[in-house]
């Protein structure tokens, strides 16, 4: 999975540079996040602007990141969801779990 990771102070932004997040590539994101947590980096913003499709494995990877960040007193926030991706969070009711922002800037301001 192509990821662009940038640091802004204590906040790590992960831009998913893929059209699809599915059972083929979601494990990469999960592993990358675990590596960041091991380095003590626990405040993540996941930029989903390029993602057009997400399946249950993609959602599972994000839930894994959310739980691991929370367990380390950090947080995982999402931003820039395309409408169909947003509908997946609503279908699975995960929109009630994640903090979801319209843009990276809004997500950054929330910290």
């Amino acid at each position: 999975m192509q990821l662009n990771i940038t640091e802004q102070g204590e906040i790590i932004k992960i831009e998913i540079q893929e059209e699809r997040m599915d059972a083929h590539n979601s494990g990469d994101l999960k592993e990358q996040m675990l590596q960041l947590f091991d380095e003590g980096k626990c405040n993540l913003i996941i930029d989903l602007s390029a993602v057009r499709f997400v399946d249950s494995s993609g959602l599972g990877a994000l839930v894994s990141g959310f739980k691991n960040a929370s367990a380390r007193e950090g947080s995982l926030k999402l931003c820039s969801l395309q409408p169909q991706v947003r509908s997946m969070f609503e279908l699975t009711r995960l929109h009630r779990v994640f903090e979801i922002f319209a843009s990276v800037e809004e997500a950054l301001e929330s910290y």
Partner: peptide, 15 residues
């Protein structure tokens, strides 16, 4: 559960 990582695939198909 909302914080379960798996188990949603079959449920999505049924929905």
């Amino acid at each position: 559960k909302e914080t379960d990582e798996g188990g949603r695939g079959v449920q999505i198909i049924f929905k």
